[in-house]
Design a protein around this nucleic acid. Structure first.
Lengths: 232, 232
DNA sequence: GAGATGCTTCGGCTACGATCGAAGTATGAA
DNA sequence: TTCATACTTCGATCGTAGCCGAAGCATCTC
């Protein structure tokens, strides 16, 4: 009767609103302290502590002690991928926490998805890379072309360094706001890090949204052009 | 504060053991009645009915009335994909419902994963198709080659018919027992259907495992050879 | 040392939701 | 019509899990 992996266990871990808030906050990619996560979840510190223990025991979170602080982060890339998948699914079924209208426009424009760029700008970037022949799409899979390696190398991305990691270089990730794919994987991570390094954009404090400077926005749009006619 | 899709809602839907059992049972691909699902979940009919209502309201299940029966099935391919992802993740964290040892060997050898072949045989089939040049793998993505189209056409798979569907032709799906990829997508579905049609294998009644006849097994292994040295 | 900060543990309260018995509705068969 | 089957709805029970106040550790500062 009972066969296979226990999906109920991880479902119930994600199913509690406070824990879901914690996980969503950690999708921002940075490690946060228990106090910060308690605030994000809207519960007291004691309650958050109990939740964090459960999430850690379940293998979703990893913690790092640093002085009297305890920093929590998603355990690994697999957790980010899992949450992305659930978010994409939830969005496809209309399970939004607020009205689906044009709310939180900054978040829809550009935000961080675990460690890479998502939202309108994330989708645009991938579209442009595919149009320009830097990335080729086969079915659901993405791969970097030789041309793309040169192109991205010229803006300071060290592809060979990325290849050495165990993680896939290119991965497509369904964007819940745009309902189209954007670029994940170690390349997606490196590109976002590159923009932040260059000062084109910066993270915002208490949100997953990414703020582009006027200059950074200009350069980003120039670097990733798309054909005049916006796709429907 | 609250931003993005509500992962807690679908998490809690999956998080209840009875509902998880129902969903797992429906991963077998066939539509089942409320009574059958109640038995699979180990609860009474009333309880199951309440769960089924919630799952349907959440967009995970679709029902079809047929006389005095009510058949339930996963709402669409997206639900199957979601559950696959969660199962793969749960297995990677060791969240198995029983000891992870060599239990349920039939299930590990060959089983149905929503609508395609999984387990050792599923993994072998994909490996063989890639080795033989019928499918090319780029990163996480799979695509059918021209050679593969000819090859599979010769055993009775109508590729052009499959292409017309909205669903991707090839998709890779992480196998929780083998921890490696097997072939999903409409091609994966068509291949399994082909084996069942030919009488090489048949479904078992109350399990997701697939039973191969001796003759079917012989032909399957011949059709999908792999290099002598088994990968570690 | 004393005091502050960050976090965990303990204990008790509370509420939500899973559960089932019983009754009600729909479809089919005799 | 009457009975049987398949399922839903109602109502009540009950357990568990989330929650917070208070107290207890641990780490840093002074």
């Amino acid at each position: 009767m009972k066969e296979g992996p226990d999906i109920a266990q991880i479902g119930s871990l994600i199913g509690d609103p406070a824990r879901a808030n914690i996980l969503t906050a950690l999708m921002g990619g940075r490690a946060l302290t228990a106090t910060e996560l308690a605030a994000a979840a809207g519960v007291t510190l004691q309650t958050a502590s109990a939740h964090l223990s459960k999430l850690e025991a379940g293998g979703l979170l990893a913690q790092r002690k640093q002085g009297r602080h305890r920093y929590f982060a998603l355990a690994d890339d697999g957790v980010g991928k899992l949450l992305e998948g659930i978010m994409g699914f939830a969005a496809s079924r209309g399970h939004l926490r607020h009205r689906p209208g044009p709310k939180e426009p900054a978040l829809r424009k550009a935000r961080i998805c675990y460690d890479h760029l998502a939202g309108d700008y994330g989708v645009r970037m991938l579209d442009s890379l595919i149009e320009g022949g830097s990335i080729s799409a086969m079915g659901e899979g993405l791969s970097l072309t030789a041309q793309g390696e040169t192109h991205l190398g010229s803006i300071g991305i060290d592809i060979s360094g990325l290849r050495s990691s165990r993680r896939p270089l290119c991965r497509s990730c369904l964007d819940w706001s745009e309902r189209r794919a954007h670029l994940a994987g170690s390349l997606g991570k490196a590109l976002l890090a590159n923009f932040l390094d260059k000062g084109w954009a910066r993270r915002t404090e208490n949100s997953r949204s990414i703020f582009f400077t006027p200059e950074g926005e200009r350069r980003f749009l120039a670097l990733f052009p798309i054909e005049a006619g916006e796709p429907s």
